[in-house]
Design a protein around this nucleic acid. Structure first.
Lengths: 196, 196
DNA sequence: AAATAGTTTAACAATTTAGTTAACAAAAGT
DNA sequence: ACTTTTGTTAACTAAATTGTTAAACTATTT
């Protein structure tokens, strides 16, 4: 399938490094076919980015829970844990996000727009603030910072395992254990940032 | 100067996004001149990478001190602080490193090679281990992990300020204050990882 | 079976890009 | 003075890349 091939190529080589011909070859179609269905390379790339952006959103927003959100520590732990698990099952996401941030192409603005326009992410942030204030903590900064920090701390953990595997051949199990451990560490650190 | 132009172009647009013509235009020479002096684009890119790699090394290795290294906490604080200051005065480095990691082109292997081959980085790691053991702590993992973690935590702080500035226009002063604060937070977290 | 709509291919055009070349100019050496 | 080396330019080549097109092929509908 062309979209899957495009996905893989863009992830591996970025926009500039990918050619419509290489996508077509990977999808085992002629590149004329690719243009017949998707017209332009940019078009394909936009679809690719849109899909990943949707995943990014999903990663940050924990699924609605029937149970009450619980206290601040529980909420943070839940968000961190959910995000980690999500990254674990979508290992290409950190790479994608960092690449987009690095290459800009207004990606930061795009992230911001997605985050702002979308109620869910703002709700998550607001929910954290409310829970914190309920416990008598006063948040002296933009609460959205916390979302950014959670994302970055968690992503760092995955980048770290990547590097360790690549540099001194760490095992899958050790990596998984470390990720699990990071859930707790990152939760604690976020709570500390919230004044807890 | 051609090398400066190449540096700026590669940082902004990456290898694939940069053309020899755009470098030449930026340096205000004909692109024939560029090829006369540097032969190939890859050649220029390699010089670019080499320079950045040297900076990366310099960033990790604190300058030799005349005074004794001090206890574990002081050592970690010193390394973290030095690294942060270095990143602060080389704001393009985090972007470069992340991009290289993302785009691979064997960059991870290159990082590993640089880190291994170079005595200084290994010395820093070994120094930490020795200091930790002197204080009765047993390090149950590869000590190089700590170097990676320091680098990633610190880089994260700069990425975070980038995002905050871009997304909700945080001021320079707030960013600088946050970076300063992160020196302490990151130091504490690294110490905790070392069992302290 | 004929018409029609959708799919596929091969060949092609236009542009971009890395790198070359030949001619020329300016220094530097002899 | 003249010869060699070095720097510079404009024009060029060859390959790659995006996108098109016309014709052929296939499936579906009528």
């Amino acid at each position: 399938m062309i979209l899957e091939a495009a996905n893989a190529e863009f992830l591996e080589k970025g926009y500039d490094g990918t050619t419509t011909a290489s996508i077509a070859a990977r999808a085992k179609v002629t590149h004329a076919m690719l243009h017949y269905y998707f017209q332009t390379k940019e078009n394909l790339f936009e679809m690719f980015v849109q899909k990943k952006m949707a995943l990014v959103k999903e990663a940050i927003c924990p699924p609605a829970r029937t149970a009450t959100p619980g206290n601040l520590a529980e909420q943070v732990r839940y968000i961190v844990s959910h995000h980690m698990d999500f990254l674990f099952s979508h290992p290409e996401l950190p790479k994608f996000m960092l690449r987009e941030i690095c290459f800009n192409r207004d990606s930061l603005a795009m992230f911001a727009a997605v985050a702002h326009q979308d109620g869910n992410i703002m709700d998550v942030a607001a929910g954290l603030k409310k829970a914190a204030e309920k416990e008598g903590l006063s948040i002296g900064f933009d609460i959205r910072t916390i979302i950014i920090e959670i994302a970055l701390f968690n992503i760092s953990a995955f980048i770290s395992t990547d590097i360790r595997r690549s540099c001194f051949g760490e095992s899958e199990e050790a990596a998984a254990a470390m990720i699990e451990n990071r859930k707790t560490e990152n939760t604690e650190r976020i709570l500390k940032m919230l004044g807890k």
